[in-house]
Nucleic acid binder design. Structure first.
Lengths: 122, 122
DNA sequence: CGGAATCCGGAGGGATACTG
DNA sequence: CAGTATCCCTCCGGATTCCG
């Protein structure tokens, strides 16, 4: 891990910057919700409960810029816009899902640890 | 992924909250740096370049509360404090490293995609 | 050495209103 | 429907200083 993260890639960027860039509140979640294929904007908003329009738009734009998600808009009325993972984006799916699965499986232990920690603190 | 994240666990918490909780700037990085075993506070600070004392302390405390990291302090002069992953913490190592490895392998493509995106935007 | 405490600027991110 | 634009405020996180 030390080797991975100290490695400088291009233009002064390191893996740390990239990790930081993707480790925000919504990114992994949105990627995970695109697991099955193309999803419309509104549907995506439903699948990620709690996300605001602003953050969904910003997150999608960031992912699009990073080449992880592609956007397709159809000239219809009403407008339809679909997002899907690119080939590169799909390679992120495995780590993202592994992380989510871990969180799901470990949640009980984590919450128990917190309860114990807090009870001792007081 | 939808199923994973919509599942409510305890006390109104969902996997999303947990994912959000661990998806900050430093957490995964610190966990990764504890890969090899016990590490002292100062050494840890060196291994995570750019982290401030404040954030290292806060991150370690959070991880300790979540039962992912254990802290051992030795009554010596000068003081020595070692941190290591707990058994639960080690189960997070695989997803965390997978994510870091992905970032490392994909960094070139991502930076290229950004350059392309930015060149088209202007 | 390994923190704790305080201060503080700025980014992150929600709510709302408006547009094509 | 799928955004964009603005306002506004929380709190993340860096810098600095002090303590056992």
């Amino acid at each position: 891990m030390q080797e991975l993260c100290s490695a400088t890639v291009q233009s002064g960027e390191s893996i740390r910057d990239l990790l930081d860039h993707l480790s925000d509140k919504w990114t992994l979640l949105v990627v995970g919700m695109l697991e099955q294929g193309a999803v419309r904007y509104g549907e995506l908003k439903l699948r990620v409960p709690g996300i605001s329009q602003r953050m969904l738009t910003l997150t999608l734009k960031k992912l699009e810029r990073d080449g992880l998600v592609s956007r397709a808009s159809f000239a219809e009325i009403p407008p339809r816009v679909e997002y899907r993972l690119t080939a590169l984006g799909e390679t992120l799916l495995a780590p993202a899902l592994a992380f989510a699965r871990w969180a799901h499986e470990s949640s009980d232990e984590i919450l128990a640890a917190r309860a114990l920690y807090d009870s001792r603190a007081n």
